[in-house]
């Protein structure tokens, strides 16, 4: 068949829905369909062009972003306007989660390197949803907590390693 005519009359499969995408994110992998439906109505899908700033260091943050497609560069900037890359994130990664629980200034900047679709989860929506769907929200926040705890564990392990290295160097 001519590729021009493919897929036109086929209905959008479940694989294309936002709920399916969210279920592939590690933090939300253990949610069932009901929880995913709640989450789906909670998040905002935002489109970014290439080189568009998502947020800058020092902004008051109000939530986290999950990358649905595209690529995001996380970097910091010193007083001399020199940028240091911290990470380059791809589809399925999330960033900015420190601002989800309290309004903290962003500790790094984020910029889309290509045209990117982000899924935003924001504090005010979460607070409202906790009142309306406490059970589902508990599961969603538990999933996020699991991933963040994993990161913390990795961090402390690395810190231990570094401390040991530093100790042997000093001796």
């Amino acid at each position: 068949m001519n590729p021009l005519w493919q897929n036109i009359f086929r209905s959008r499969g479940y694989e294309n829905t936002l709920a399916y995408f969210l279920s592939t994110v590690p933090a939300f992998s253990k949610l069932d369909k009901r929880d995913l439906a709640v989450l789906e109505h909670l998040v905002h899908v935002r489109n970014y062009t290439a080189d568009e700033v998502v947020f800058s260091e020092g902004d008051i943050g109000s939530g986290m972003y999950i990358i649905r497609s595209g690529q995001v560069r996380i970097y910091t900037q010193d007083d001399l306007e020199q940028t240091t890359d911290k990470a380059v994130l791809e589809t399925g990664d999330f960033f900015g989660e420190t601002a989800l629980t309290a309004s903290r200034p962003r500790c790094a900047s984020a910029k889309a390197t290509e045209s990117t679709v982000l899924v935003g989860l924001f504090r005010s929506d979460v607070e409202e949803a906790i009142r309306r769907h406490p059970l589902e929200m508990a599961k969603i926040m538990f999933g996020l907590n699991r991933v963040i705890s994993d990161r913390l564990l990795q961090c402390s392990l690395q810190l231990d390693k570094l401390m040991k290295l530093y100790g042997t160097e000093q001796q």
Binding site: Y48, D59, I60, S62, F122, S124
Partner: peptide, 11 residues
């Protein structure tokens, strides 16, 4: 996009 978070918070 730049003002989205602010709008959401203020709302």
């Amino acid at each position: 996009n730049r003002y989205f978070e602010m709008t959401l918070d203020i709302y």
